[in-house]
């Protein structure tokens, strides 16, 4: 982690590029995915509002989904492997233990989790590990749906075609939950927003009292 004065670099360039491409791709994938979902809903009680769907009709939704998927997947895989090879995950995400998660979650709920610029607490670590696993799973289950014959071995991991559809839906739902939490926490601690653009954060930035940074 490099430092200039009281500023420290907390997000490497490749992470920021990944983050913003992923943000756009994810929104397009979810909105076009909802269009596709509506053509044959998995659950009778759930249909997505047309105003939140992309593509105008099923054919348009599919076109968006199968175009943007390349951006989403290539971006995700580059980020994933660079993060592993560069040691980013090892340094930033680990170690994380069930005990440390419980401890930090307890602190967070009592408003006593210290905000340490450039270091993730255990709740942050497990959230990011979780959403990365979800994105990889949504990719693999998507492959199993898209090419159910060619990638039938992957499909079997999810219990076949219909199983993959369900897993794909559940991953989407949990990713949506992550996005909501992520945006709420950035809104609560707005000083975390600029570093995801510039990479730099003020080491001495005043930390909002009693507010936990998990975004």
């Amino acid at each position: 982690m490099s430092k200039i004065g009281d500023k420290i670099k907390i997000h490497p360039l490749y992470v920021r590029i990944f983050h913003w491409i992923n943000a756009v791709a994810m929104v397009l994938m979810i909105m076009s995915g909802w269009q596709i979902y509506n053509a044959s809903p998995l659950f009778e009680w759930l249909e997505f509002p047309r105003s939140l769907t992309l593509g105008g009709w099923l054919g348009g939704g599919l076109q968006f989904h199968f175009a943007v998927m390349w951006v989403f997947v290539i971006n995700l895989l580059i980020y994933f492997f660079v993060s592993i090879l560069s040691g980013h995950y090892r340094r930033s995400m680990f170690p994380v233990t069930p005990m440390s998660i419980l401890r930090d979650l307890g602190k967070a709920l009592r408003g006593r989790l210290p905000h340490d610029v450039g270091h993730y607490n255990s709740v942050q670590k497990i959230s990011y590990i979780g959403v990365i696993v979800l994105m990889l799973t949504v990719f693999l289950s998507g492959l199993a749906i898209w090419k159910s014959v060619q990638f039938q071995t992957i499909g079997l991991l999810f219990g076949g075609y219909e199983g993959a559809r369900l897993v794909h839906f559940i991953c989407m739902s949990l990713i949506c939950a992550f996005i909501v939490m992520h945006l709420v926490l950035v809104a609560i601690v707005p000083s975390t927003f600029i570093p995801m653009i510039t990479g730099w954060a003020r080491k001495s930035a005043p930390v909002e009292k009693g507010v936990d940074h998990v975004a």
């Binding site: 968006f64 090419k147 039938q152």
Partner: peptide, 25 residues
């Protein structure tokens, strides 16, 4: 235009992925 180009690309990608000997379950 982009969506059309991507759909044409997807035709090619699927043709490449297609294994003529792989049987459906």
């Amino acid at each position: 235009r982009i969506l059309k180009a991507m759909s044409n690309w997807n035709d090619k990608a699927q043709g490449a992925i297609f294994d003529p000997n792989k049987l459906a379950l």
